[in-house]
Design a protein around this nucleic acid. Structure first.
Length: 486
RNA sequence: GGGGCUGUAGUGUAGCUUGGUAUCACUGGUGGUUCGGGGCCGCCCGACGGGGGUUCAAAUCCUCCCAGCCCCA
């Protein structure tokens, strides 16, 4: 095969230069593009299809949980920010302000998160214990004025997300809910996106600005770096107090409620790309793939009769697949060869390719090819819909299992501080004891060239008896995961 | 805040020292021939970041502006 420069395909391997590989996959598969506005991306139709798939899945879950969607303003008055001290401090550096305003009008920010505008309304709406729990979610755009390099889906100045904001009468209900939502996130990532998740509690230093504590789902990428994919906060009563949210209890007294907030963003799409993609391009987990199968007919100009048969069978196959709830397309463009089409659809991550050629037609067959491992099998045409459905399910599981195996193989435990640095350099995910001091966390970050405390894994975060902190030797408060991160 | 580098078609580039109407490839369009892993051949479209200056003549020299990148604080 002659080596040709082809700007359509990837020019680097995932294992050789992952940042460049990532950028090429996103651009060439047409998921997203850069825009004229610095720091902002354009989500193209294929990318937006993925986001809609995520929205559909999550909206169905919200419905089951009795959480309603609503929409609040993009603009946040400056005074709202200032009401919660920890919150304003945490977000101040990356808030974008609106320059335009009438005289005497208050300065407005573009929302970097919506706690404050939403809770100002909540204060009006909540009067009695009968108004609780209040369960509201919104899908919207968010602006955070990042100064670092833009990475499509992973970091941009504007992105899409959902943010749920709930209010409860008791602390217990509130924390249970925050925990329930982080488990919903884990379910979404694992079930829909085939991303193995570690769920845990963030250290104090990594806790959301203004929150009591923060749960997070962390996904570990093939380069050993952690990608935080969603967070759920128990906000305590700080915001309720700052925004004068109170309710009359059955005891006829005023009480301060407890609040949670939780969100995930289009970053999830970045995780899918990084985790499942390969040297040929995007690999979409079947459940999130907008198109499950593409049919590539193999035609011969020299044999019109055969070509007609091939096309007729291909069209029939698309119809049969659709009738069986499998979204499929026929690639009958005549300006490209089959080989070209194979490469293009692999780049775009379509789970299953079906080849239909004269040889297959002769035996009423077709060839199915799986995107994740390239395995081929010839089957009878009438069995295709059933077989495709089975293969899609199988592929979803294989993607998850492969990723899970990879993460598990990278996780280690140590209580030796020198080993910690070396292990992080080797891109390991390290479970170690920690004293819980913020200052100690800072030292670790400096000593290990950016190694951060990701989270105390739920269920696995209790310290061993008499264990001491991996760095300072003080009594350990918990076990925590260390890694490099995005 | 200080210093450096770079702007040529949709993309990547050659040309700049020594001024003379811009190279090559990919993409795109089109015609033919192909079609079971990115086929081949022909034709066509398409660019000097912006303003000012020097000159018969500026992508090239001078100057200002703009944009992007890198390094140092």
């Amino acid at each position: 095969m002659a080596e040709k420069t082809n700007t359509k395909g990837l020019t680097v391997k995932k294992s050789e230069d992952m940042p460049e590989w990532y950028s090429q996959v996103v651009l060439k598969s047409e998921l997203a593009d850069y825009s004229a506005v610095r720091g902002c991306a354009v989500i193209r139709p294929l990318g937006y299809d993925l986001w809609q798939g995520i929205m559909d899945y999550f909206n169905a879950r919200l419905k089951l949980l009795g959480i309603k969607n609503a929409y609040f303003p993009l603009f946040i008055p400056e005074s709202f920010f200032k009401r919660e001290a920890g919150h304003v401090e945490g977000f101040a550096p990356e808030v974008a302000w609106v320059e335009q305003k009438s005289k005497d009008e208050e300065k407005l920010a573009l929302r970097p998160t919506s706690e404050t505008v939403m809770y100002d309304s909540y204060a009006k709406w909540i009067r009695s214990h009968r108004d609780l729990p209040l369960l509201i979610n919104q899908w919207c755009n968010i602006v955070r004025w990042e100064v670092k390099d833009v990475k499509l889906f992973l970091r941009s100045r504007e992105f899409l997300w959902q943010e749920g904001h709930c209010v409860f009468a008791t602390e217990q209900e509130c924390d249970e809910h925050a925990l329930q939502m982080i488990k919903e996130y884990q379910r979404l990532a694992e079930e829909l996106l085939a991303i193995p998740i570690t769920t845990g509690l963030k250290s104090k230093k990594e806790t959301f600005a203004g929150a009591k504590h923060t749960y997070a789902i962390e996904a570990f990428m093939p380069d050993g770096k952690a990608l935080q994919c969603g967070t759920s906060h128990n906000l305590g009563q700080g915001f309720a107090k700052a925004f004068n949210i109170t309710y009359k209890g059955t005891d006829e007294q005023d009480h301060t409620p407890w609040q949670s907030s939780w969100g995930f963003s289009t970053r999830l799409i970045g995780a899918v790309i990084l985790l499942h993609g390969d040297d040929k391009g995007l690999v979409l987990p079947p459940r999130i793939a907008p198109t499950k199968a593409v049919i590539v007919p193999i035609t011969k100009a020299s044999d019109q009769a055969a070509t007609r048969k091939v096309l007729a069978a291909s069209r029939q196959l698309v119809a049969d697949l659709k009738r069986n709830d499998t979204e499929a397309i026929l690639d009958d463009r005549d300006e490209h060869s089959p080989g070209f089409k194979y490469n293009e659809w692999e780049l775009k991550g379509i789970p299953i390719r079906i080849e239909v050629g004269p040889k297959d037609i002769a035996t009423d067959s077709c060839v199915l090819v799986k995107r994740n491992d390239g395995t081929k099998q010839a089957i009878k045409l009438q069995e295709a819909p059933k077989t495709v459905t089975a293969l899609l399910g199988q592929m979803q599981q294989e993607l998850y299992d492969k990723a899970k195996k990879d993460v598990d193989s990278r996780q280690v435990t140590t209580n030796d501080y020198e080993a910690l640095t070396q292990l992080l350099d080797e891109r390991k995910i390290v479970l170690a004891h920690h004293c819980g001091d913020e200052e100690c966390e800072d030292h670790i970050k400096a000593d290990t060239n950016g190694g951060t405390t990701r989270c105390r894994p739920l269920g696995d975060g209790k310290p061993d008896k008499d264990a001491t902190c991996v760095r300072c030797g003080k009594p350990a408060k918990y076990k925590i995961l260390f890694s490099r991160n995005y």
